[in-house]
Simulated scan of single mutants.
Amino acid sequence: MTSNSTTYEGGCTCRQVRYRMTAKPLFVHCCHCRWCQRETGTAFALNAMIEADRVELLSGEPEPVMTPSASGRGQKIWRCPTCRIAVWSNYGSAGDAVRFVRVGSLDEPDRLPPDIHIFTSSKQPWVVLPEGAPAVTEYYDTKKTWPAESLARREALRAKRS
């Protein structure tokens, strides 16, 4: 665990794979789409989006598992080779530059509640969102939803890729 408010450590169940996020995530999604429900075996996926270069691998070597996605571009889910726990994903649209860290794999997952609930049109009816929680039926406009600091980091990332 860490006491620094801008670093977050996590890993898999068997502790072979350990990582550290060295910055606050760009944004945290709670996705209620059917694909996330199927891939996680639960009602939703909680992902912290962060630049790949801000995730340090402390031990182990996760393995990518290619899976289909609704976009048709696929998704790489990085899993511990021993216990098979997912620690992060890369989506086709963002490439390898952005990791979607599984918040549940953090040592202190309660430090990163969702910034928004997405694809609530397919949310399980028994999941009750907190009153006032930002939520959209499908996806959202990043420019209108993300904080200015995250938008600036996103633009810096895009500039590096060009």
Rank of each mutant, 00 (worst) to 15 (best):
residue 72 G to A: 10
residue 94 A to R: 02
residue 63 E to A: 13
residue 86 A to D: 08
residue 89 S to N: 08
residue 108 E to D: 15
residue 54 R to M: 09
residue 117 H to K: 09
residue 115 D to R: 12
residue 113 P to I: 09
residue 99 R to W: 05
residue 103 V to M: 05
residue 86 A to K: 01
residue 95 G to Q: 02
residue 50 I to L: 07
residue 53 D to C: 07
residue 56 E to P: 01
residue 94 A to T: 13
residue 78 W to F: 14
residue 116 I to P: 08
residue 117 H to M: 07
residue 98 V to P: 00
residue 66 M to C: 03
residue 91 Y to K: 01
residue 78 W to D: 01
residue 89 S to A: 15
residue 91 Y to H: 06
residue 120 T to A: 08
residue 101 V to I: 10
residue 96 D to A: 13
residue 88 W to V: 01
residue 53 D to H: 14
residue 99 R to S: 05
residue 85 I to G: 05
residue 44 F to R: 01
residue 75 Q to I: 14
residue 123 K to E: 04
residue 68 P to K: 09
residue 120 T to R: 08
residue 87 V to E: 05
residue 106 L to E: 02
residue 60 G to F: 04
residue 67 T to I: 14
residue 107 D to C: 08
residue 120 T to E: 07
residue 61 E to W: 01
residue 104 G to H: 03
residue 59 S to T: 09
residue 97 A to S: 11
residue 47 N to I: 02
residue 106 L to W: 01
residue 102 R to L: 06
residue 60 G to R: 00
residue 99 R to V: 03
residue 117 H to F: 13
residue 94 A to H: 05
residue 114 P to S: 13
residue 123 K to Q: 13
residue 100 F to K: 00
residue 66 M to V: 10
residue 45 A to Y: 01
residue 83 C to E: 11
residue 101 V to Y: 02
residue 105 S to P: 06
residue 81 P to T: 09
residue 90 N to I: 00
